[in-house]
Design a binder for these strands. Structure first.
Lengths: 106, 106
DNA sequence: TTGACATGCAACCAAATGGTTGCCTATAAA
DNA sequence: TTTATAGGCAACCATTTGGTTGCATGTCAA
């Protein structure tokens, strides 16, 4: 699974909003997810396709409806593999940052 | 600080690469950061400006050089505020996801 | 079976994005 | 005081992106 697709998918506020909605109430249909949004259904469809391609959302067809479920694994992977790297030694880096910036400044 | 700017800044592979480089060796000049990249200096300048606007990178001028330092705080904030939300109950959500997807499938 | 509802597909559009080239400014060094 | 080096600014360009409208397909219910 490409980490780039996940980052790209998360970079749009509308898509993060959709993830938030699924986090609040998992297993919604497309129309459920559209309700109250300032977007056409087709726009939401596109966003969901991007989230699905990034493996952040999984779907299941049930009759004429399509149910959407959030998949926490890729988000967790980013937290573990990528953010974790910057976390380690965070306080040290922050202290170093302040020290470096303050050299030769008022 | 806008969380959206941070997500947007992190969505580009070149910018994540620059952060990686600063993580490896902090306090580099613009030319340091350009060396060996398949990009013009001006492209790197633009990326660094975006990272700086998102508060992911801080700079200090030293003579005719400009030193760049990574700031771990916004990344940490995202981990805490946003990813943390999806982390909580991750295993439960994953089990639920599998259960939902497997209903009525081979 | 026919109408209503849920979703899919494709063409199109404006704006944002990532990149380039060319030139200008400022500082260090010869 | 030249000259080379580090960086800044601006115009321009192609592609991607987020969105729309219009129409097609599939499924449930009367």
């Amino acid at each position: 699974m490409s980490m780039d697709a996940v980052f790209k998918a998360l970079s749009d506020p509308s898509r993060r909003q959709l993830l938030d909605r699924l986090h609040d109430h998992n297993g919604q249909t497309l129309n459920d997810l559209c309700s109250g949004l300032e977007m056409t259904r087709q726009a939401v469809t596109k966003h969901l396709a991007i989230l699905e391609a990034a493996n952040l959302v999984a779907t299941r067809k049930q009759g004429r409806e399509k149910l959407h479920f959030i998949n926490p694994v890729p988000i967790n992977d980013i937290a573990e593999r990528w953010i974790g790297k910057f976390e380690r030694g965070r306080l040290k880096a922050l202290a170093e940052l302040k020290r470096n910036l303050e050299r030769e400044e008022p």
